[in-house]
């Protein structure tokens, strides 16, 4: 057990160092969701007047969006890093050591999770500057960051699965628009009951991204909403577990050491 934890720690340290040494990739990942947030909150203010819209500013309603966006970027970062390891042969270098597949995968997503932590912290500061009032208070800010890191971890796991399956960075980047589409087919812009188009509402209801967003949003506009938080944390754990399980299976095919 100790050896396994050491291995995870070593791979995680490398993943974090690698992520932090790519400021060119890290900065846009943090800034782009903020820009989108500015566009949403400025352009959809009229939604506040819809009957049934929560009794909050649209800025506060939309504030969960960048936290979710950064998780989507985590998919790309973790997936691309893994794909590069496969392409460069670094994975074979690791395969010559006694490291286990699951340890390798868990360690690999650490960089993306740390990126999620840095981004979420930056968004909290931004929220404080623009006057976002988090209904759950100071503890709510902390849990918001924690949930954001969990979601980033889960989506980074999806990135790994794509990378291990495809074995190249282009495939990971190609999957990114698809993930972005799942975001837009969620309750990111409006509460689900207020979505008028039936098929869109049905898709948003079936889309796990809606519940992850609503978990984060609940802290901002509702306060301590246990069911919403349980769904948010539970789904992110489920996605992470499934993604790592699939990645581990795929890794056995990719890394056929005897």
């Amino acid at each position: 057990m100790r050896a396994t934890l050491d291995q995870i720690g070593s791979i995680a340290r490398r993943s974090i160092v690698r992520t932090l040494r790519q400021p060119g990739a890290l900065a846009p990942t943090i800034i782009f969701p903020l820009m989108l947030f500015a566009v949403y909150s400025a352009g959809a203010e009229t939604a506040e007047k819809l009957p049934g819209f929560p009794d909050v500013d649209y800025t506060e309603f939309a504030f969960a969006v960048p936290f979710m966006h950064v998780a989507l970027f985590a998919t790309g970062i973790a997936g691309t890093d893994m794909a590069r390891d496969i392409e460069s042969g670094f994975l074979q270098r690791l395969a010559l050591t006694p490291i286990g597949g699951v340890s390798l995968l868990i360690g690999q997503v650490a960089g993306a999770a740390v990126m999620g932590l840095i981004a979420a912290s930056a968004y909290v500061v931004t929220g404080l500057i623009v006057g976002v009032d988090v209904a759950a208070g100071i503890g709510g800010w902390v849990i918001l960051i924690a949930l954001s890191v969990c979601i980033s971890f889960a989506f980074a796991g999806l990135g790994l699965a794509i990378a291990v399956h495809a074995g190249n960075a282009e495939a990971v980047q190609g999957a990114f628009p698809l993930l972005f589409a799942t975001f837009f087919l969620s309750s990111f812009a409006l509460p689900r009951p207020l979505i008028e188009v039936d098929w869109f509402r049905a898709v948003a209801t079936a889309n796990p991204v809606s519940y992850l967003l609503e978990g984060e949003r609940s802290l901002i506009i509702v306060g301590w909403d246990a069911p919403a938080l349980a769904l948010g944390f539970g789904l992110s754990a489920l996605i992470a577990g499934l993604a790592l399980m699939i990645s581990a299976r795929l890794l056995r095919t990719r890394l056929v050491r005897t």
Partner: peptide, 21 residues
């Protein structure tokens, strides 16, 4: 020659040595 371009030479040693136990 599969090296991580973002790690230093010494960090490669640390990583591999810890994985070797």
């Amino acid at each position: 020659v599969a090296l991580d371009p973002y790690l230093t030479g010494r960090e490669h040693f640390r990583l591999q040595a810890s994985l070797l136990g």
